[in-house]
Write a protein that binds this DNA or RNA. Structure first.
Length: 221
DNA sequence: GACCAGGCACATC
DNA sequence: GATGTGCATGGT
């Protein structure tokens, strides 16, 4: 039942929006940096910060790691929480330097579960950021849960509102094939509908998910 | 001017 | 363990 519903949601979203080609980013490190910068922040602001980092030619682990913290703060300022995120980026590059000599290719040899635990051990990297890095930067079959995932699945009655990250993640991973491309596209599409139609104060009249039953607090009813 | 945006850590009870 | 709060810019 859940399985069919998830597939239906995926199909409706894919038909409506088309492939999303996520994650926006040219390199694995750029994706990692973006995953931290986009925490509770709109992507348009993140894009400005990333453009600044590119212009300054420091969008590589070693280059960013030796940069003065104040310089990082200035470059990423448009992304908001810039002092906090400068520290978090520093923690990320410290982890890469300590464990992998700043060489991202070395991460390929590490088991996904161990990588996830290591990422969660970096201060400033929580479940969503870790999973975004695993899926989008490192191509591991890990489903990413975020506010949009929660909003859409709760509205469509797939899960109770009182949910934890793990239970929501399990809803997807236990009902879908562990396929990197599927997880990539599905999450991107959920974000897409999340910021298009399924907003906190949404305009749902043309929402691609309207054919499906809505349950909780949904203006489509 | 209020609200929202692809979270997380930490303090307090 | 649950709940509250600080972090900050930029678009709508």
């Amino acid at each position: 039942m859940i399985r069919e519903r998830l597939n239906e949601i995926y199909r409706l979203l894919l038909d409506f929006y088309g492939p999303q080609h996520w994650w926006p980013g040219e390199t694995r490190f750029e994706i990692m940096v973006g995953a931290i910068l986009t925490q509770n922040t709109s992507w348009s602001n993140v894009a400005k910060a990333i453009a600044n980092l590119k212009t300054a030619d420091c969008l590589e682990p070693d280059k960013l790691h030796v940069l003065d913290p104040a310089q990082i703060e200035t470059l990423i300022r448009p992304a908001g929480y810039f002092r906090l995120k400068a520290k978090r980026l520093r923690n990320l590059t410290q982890w890469l330097a300590d464990g992998y000599e700043g060489d991202l290719a070395r991460l390929d040899a590490i088991d996904t579960q161990r990588l996830r635990e290591e990422l969660l051990g970096v201060s400033g990297i929580g479940p969503e950021t870790a999973d975004s890095i695993l899926l989008y930067a490192l191509n591991r079959p890990v489903f990413v849960v975020d506010t949009y995932t929660a909003r859409v699945t709760v509205r469509h009655g797939l899960i109770e509102p009182e949910l934890t990250y793990e239970t929501l993640q399990d809803l997807f991973t236990s009902n879908l094939e562990p396929d990197v491309q599927l997880f990539n596209e599905f999450h991107a599409l959920l974000v897409c509908v999340g910021k298009g139609f399924c907003k906190p104060k949404p305009r749902c009249t043309a929402c691609p998910l309207n054919p499906l039953p809505h349950t909780i607090d949904c203006p489509c009813d």
